[in-house]
Design a protein around this nucleic acid. Structure first.
Length: 295
RNA sequence: GCGUCGGUGGUAGAGUGGUCAAUUACAACAGACUGUAAAUCUGUCGCCUCCGGGCUACGAAGGUUCGAAUCCUUCCCGACGCA
């Protein structure tokens, strides 16, 4: 049997220097970087998302940045598809794919067996379901698929309608919502997790947030909000809120606090992945050594 | 120095005789996540617990009362006003 191709994954808390490390490693192993960040996929979200700049890429190709317009919703499923295409493309050119990002859901989507049923949105059905209440939708789903219905968090009202509708949509098309299954991966993933002690993180975040404002975060937001015919991107306030705290009425103090909180949520997510080998981002030598014996 | 107002849990800030271990918010801690995921949501949050309850608590010390974070006295601290 042929050896499975190796893919390096760099994940972890925000502001720990993932992008830097990715570029460094890419240089060593002839790699190319695929970003796994749910916001950096959008054009126009640069400063607030800490998107890597051309200069910082140091000639290493980066993919899945700026692949969507902020007004349109980009989904995990799209991400997965694009990322997998890119992985194949990189591999056929004899290079090493390096997945780098902090969005756990996105990373799991390519790294684990999370697969998204090929059920396209059913516009007609959605039109009908749109007018139903949450309770009605819940009942419908219960009839169609007990198991999935049980898993839906009844208290998460804001999200539930969307989830219920999607689940019903899938169940109607396939009979049931397929269970998540750990697919045998086509690749070997080497997962490197970066963390920092809270104090260190706090320092780095504070510095970074300061830079963000200096670099013109507020201007970036203004431009996003400005109507298209005036040269902006026409993003609504509501949509802006979805892009996170940097984009909704940010103040330095608040952005710092929220960033720290977010980084903790990231840890909660990544914790369950036992394949991740964790490093403090201060010990880059150890990481290099670790990689050397793996590749 | 005199006068006024105030001192409540990690913070802000409710509560002004029993229903108060004390509303709420924030922070903290833990967790969820099947096409929005930096989003959204859940639980815990004085100490101990055999989860029945027990103990210590609202600046300090006394007092009134069957009962006090809440009333009284003195003291300490803070803000403001007058000197």
């Amino acid at each position: 049997m042929k050896k499975k191709p190796t893919i390096i994954v760099i994940l972890g808390q925000t502001a720990t220097g993932k992008s830097n490390l990715a570029v460094q490693i890419a240089k060593k192993v002839r790699g190319e970087v695929i970003s796994a960040d749910s916001r950096q996929v959008y054009t126009g979200l640069d400063i607030g998302t800490g998107k890597i700049t051309k200069k910082e890429m140091k000639g290493v190709p980066h993919y899945l940045l700026d692949v969507a317009k902020p007004k349109k919703r980009f989904t995990v499923a799209q991400f997965k598809k694009l990322a997998e295409e890119k992985i194949e493309d990189i591999l056929t050119r004899g290079k090493t794919p390096i997945i780098c990002g902090g969005t756990g859901f996105y990373i799991d989507a390519i790294t684990k067996g999370v697969f998204f049923p090929e059920v396209p949105p059913n516009v007609k059905l959605r039109k009908i379901l749109e007018h139903k209440t949450e309770a009605e939708l819940f009942k419908m789903l219960q009839k169609l698929d007990q198991r999935r219905a049980k898993d839906i968090d009844k208290k998460n009202e804001q999200q539930n309608k969307v989830r219920l509708v999607r689940a019903i949509e899938i169940a109607k098309a396939l009979g049931k919502v397929p269970k998540i299954q750990e697919l045998k991966p086509k690749y070997t993933f080497i997962k490197i997790g970066l963390t920092l002690p809270t104090e260190e993180l706090q320092k780095k975040v504070t510095k970074r947030v300061g830079q963000m404002f200096k670099q013109g975060l507020l201007k970036e937001i203004t431009k996003l909000k400005k109507p298209v015919h005036l040269g902006g991107m026409g993003v609504s306030d509501k949509r802006l809120k979805e892009f996170g705290f940097e984009y909704y009425k940010p103040t330095p103090e608040r952005v710092i606090i929220e960033t720290i909180k977010y980084s903790k949520r990231q840890i909660t997510w990544f914790k369950r992945d036992k394949q991740i080998k964790w490093f403090s981002s201060l010990e880059s030598k150890k990481i290099q050594e670790f990689l050397k014996e793996k590749i």
